[in-house]
Amino acid sequence: MSGLMLVFLVVLIFVVLYQVARSSEMVAQIQGEQQFDKKRNKILGFSMLILMIAFFVGIVWCHEYMLPLMGPEAASNHGVQYDFMFKVTLWVTGIVFVLTQVLLFWFCFKYQRNGDKAPVFFAHSNKLELIWTTVPAIAMAVLVAIGLKAWFTMTGEAPKGAMQIEIVGKQFNWISRYPGPDGELGKKYFLNINDKDNLLGQDWKDKRNMDDIIIPNGELRLVKDVPVELIIGSRDVIHDVGLSHFRMKMDAVPGITTRIWFTPTITTAEMKMKTGNENFVYELSCDQMCGKGHYSMRAIVVVETQAEHDKWLKEQKSYYVQNHPEEFPAEAPIVAPVDSSKKITMNK
């Protein structure tokens, strides 16, 4: 009932406003169209100027309000490159933005029609048109050059010595897999998947799988200043590994393996200090619409020192061992072919 009343009220307000507005046009007719037109142009021309001032004041105010809420500095090598490029683009677009918006609103105010100014017939100028074709072209060339340089670094091969972690999305959580002491991830196939004891569908005939560690909540443990390559997959629909603090992102597509690499540069503990936020954590968000739980598909990323990482690794049991405890009485060492050349970050 109250809903109906509200609708009624809104309609009533509309009717009143419409009538008021109509009467103002009656006034216009009485005053004479031209007189009214002149007055209206004056008011609106002036409003455009006020609109511009309000616009820019609003932008500054919004900026001041937003700055303290923005995330911390980039926490990866690519992120630093990203931040630089963002700034350059912001300056280029910012200058164009201010210039064109000011001109637009200023012209509105300056060239409002009042009286009968002689019309200016200015339809064409090769020189001007050439200028504003070439200047944007040059600006674009600069942006493309900076952009492609960054793009090819970011998407290029991961450096030798990068640690590899697999991250797999499913509705609605992430699963991460670490290669274990052999430094290699074993094969997997989707037909082997079951939620009881083979989350990723590892092929147990592949011995490299025996020592692989799986973290079912998708936690990523990265080491400061050690490049990491994420090997990304999905079990069901398309997800996306979003690492906003590291300025990285990559889709997780079923049937396809995608990869990204980067080098974290600030540990979680350091970031807590820098931000003064005790609760600070790096978060991995799903950035591709994946169903009703999309917004809750969160995983924690921990950046730590090598020593902390090694300690953590030592505490982990391989997924195979966890699920087949009968085959491994007591704390027997994991049997897996260790290829020393592939041992990279697991050197204890």
Binding site: R40, N41, M48, K117, F122, P136
Partner: peptide, 25 residues
């Protein structure tokens, strides 16, 4: 980014259209 060029041309042309006009709001 190439597509920014024709777009920029359009914007500048609109601005020049209202420049020195007799704008009727």
């Amino acid at each position: 980014l190439l597509i920014a060029i024709p777009s920029a041309v359009k914007v500048f042309n609109w601005l020049t259209t209202i420049w020195k006009g007799n704008i009727r709001f």
